[in-house]
Design a protein around this nucleic acid. Structure first.
Lengths: 337, 337
DNA sequence: GCAAGAACCTAATGCGTATTAGCAACTAAT
DNA sequence: ATTAGTTGCTAATACGCATTAGGTTCTTGC
């Protein structure tokens, strides 16, 4: 800015006024200053800006996953892609970090906030008994929880969520209508809030219909566990007629395993993936799946966070319920022999 | 720091000396200051630090991909995971951005550097006729190119690369030894440096052996194009006996397509994936694949970047050649009828 | 023709840290 | 006993920007 001032023959203050659209400088001078700034390729130093009161112009995103679990997962890249779209408009940066577990994640939040590195954070994979909302509340770090249930205990946090429970209920409705009575839900990580929500809802729906042979089994989301559980439950004397997998990776592994065991999909067993992706159309039969717009999910979350950072109120917004895309892996239950 | 100084009864300078391990303060005072800082939960403001000469303590990573291409790709998350491991040790942040194309990517580099937001960047997906190395050279922005060939035209840039050409040569060796004479390489995006390297090497190897029915076809890496190309080449009067796919997604799509067309893998046609992931073990037969350690790739790149940022010389380091993991999708060519 | 006000600009200050220069008290060497 | 050197600290300054308080000229109203 000193250089610009010199080139334009004015003071640094005038330059600041001119470039920030403040009054106190004539239009002629303003244009001249702008032009010089342009020529010099000037951009304000974020550090200096931040030091004089502005925010860090950055939001944080922490992914707490062991490196080897990071494998095939289209959800996060799409989510991030949507987040970026919104952040880019406002020239906000995204500080990204991968850590091992939630404790490390908390440590990262503490550090980021103490160092004034971020203006807010996006929190994913909310859990039951999650230490993060308390911490964020205590720190006063603006945050949007992605995928959690509405949480009235932390009025400072925004929440963006999809109605997993409603989706599960309608899935069960559908399966029941097609004659399915024995259903196994190959769930994701225990402890994740949405895993527990789905499990609870499934149990409730089963009880409502007095179905005794309906259950959920938790896994680590890996193809290996997906296959193992599939093998186990299909090996029973009265195997399930419908399998609900909490992600696409396990669903694909499950279909392969079913085929090995001589089960035909969907004639012998229906398969539904709770995550839609290219994967679902890469196996035969194509997998029916619950589809959500992850990119839009990210956009919504980012919008909420920017609103929060700008001093807006915390809100709880619901994104559309995931829709079942019926492909070739689901059908009516085989009539009992 | 003002608070710490007050609590400890010394000047701010003393606090700075004490906390940064500088001489000019007694051990007693140093300990006292440290303790007060600890109690107050003090962490230096990165903005202020940066303003007084330190770097931004951040490196940048731009992914230039349309949102819908981001789908199933394990490579990047693993790469980033490795990068993070190294950066976390030194408390460096990773500023991440997804953009549409290389031009946008260049704009991001300009802005980041002008705003002093990053100390260096990691560049992925190098291309033929890539504008980025020139730009980075011109800007003086420290950078590590990941996956490019050694580039003596830009001595300021570090390069971390795998020997694709060597890997392709050995793959052809292997296939030739097993009797394959008609080989189709379903390549990735034209314009990507490693795509072109593989294509060139394949052609050279074919010429060396006077094989006329060897070719490469470029694609957009999608399962759709992978399937389409597979369908086309297997429909020929003399279909290839070996298919090399530049990623796992296309390989899987290719196997499914081959099965549809009545080709048995590997009896009628061998399939090799140039990317290993859980996907390769999710289809039958399990796919033989070229495997590389993407996490270690990321670590290496991050290490080179930190060295560069610390003022070290630019280097060109080679990571181990990808190894062929032989599974069930490759075998001897069927003897000509 | 003079005061009041507006328009345009400059000077000065602060943000939180690192660093340099300076200063006092004490120690070692001549 | 005086000087030179060392130790342990404080004061002052810079970093790049935003902002607030001043200051000059120009215009307007009576």
């Amino acid at each position: 800015m000193k250089d610009i001032a010199r080139h334009a023959g004015v003071s640094q203050s005038a330059v600041s006024f001119a470039l920030n659209g403040r009054p106190g400088v004539s239009e002629g001078t303003r244009d001249r200053v702008r032009q010089v700034a342009e020529e010099l390729g000037w951009r304000p130093s974020t550090a200096a800006r931040q030091l004089s009161g502005e925010g860090a112009a950055t939001v944080g995103f922490v992914l707490a996953r062991p490196a080897d679990t990071l494998g095939v997962d289209s959800f996060f890249l799409q989510l991030v892609s949507g987040i970026q779209e919104v952040l880019a408009e406002r020239h906000l940066g995204l500080l990204f970090q991968v850590v091992e577990d939630v404790d490390d994640e908390c440590a990262v939040y503490r550090r980021w906030w103490a160092e004034h590195r971020v203006d807010g954070v996006l929190v994913v994979d909310p859990r039951t008994a999650d230490p993060r909302p308390d911490l964020l509340d205590q720190l006063g770090l603006p945050a949007v929880v992605i995928g959690g249930a509405p949480d009235e205990r932390h009025p400072g946090l925004s929440t963006v969520w999809a109605d997993d429970a409603g989706a599960m209920a309608s899935v069960v409705d559908e399966l029941y209508a097609h004659g399915h009575r024995r259903i196994v839900h190959i769930a994701g990580l225990p402890g994740l809030a949405h895993t527990e929500r789905r499990i609870r809802t499934l149990r409730a729906e089963a009880e409502r219909r007095s179905l005794s042979e309906v259950e959920s089994v938790t896994t680590d989301y890996s193809d290996a566990e997906g296959a193992a559980v599939t093998r186990r439950v299909l090996g029973r004397p009265a195997p399930p007629t419908a399998l609900i997998y909490d992600n696409d990776v396990m669903a694909v592994a499950g279909v392969a395993t079913a085929a090995e065991l001589g089960f035909s999909v969907p004639a012998d067993v229906s398969v539904l993936s709770w995550e839609d992706s290219a994967l679902c159309r890469m196996v035969k039969p194509w997998l029916s799946a619950l589809s959500r717009d992850s990119v839009e999910f990210g956009r919504t979350a980012a919008r909420e966070l920017t609103a929060l950072v700008d001093g807006g109120p915390a809100r709880t917004v619901r994104v559309p319920v995931p829709q079942v895309i019926v492909r070739d892996s689901t059908g009516a239950a085989r009539a009992p022999a």
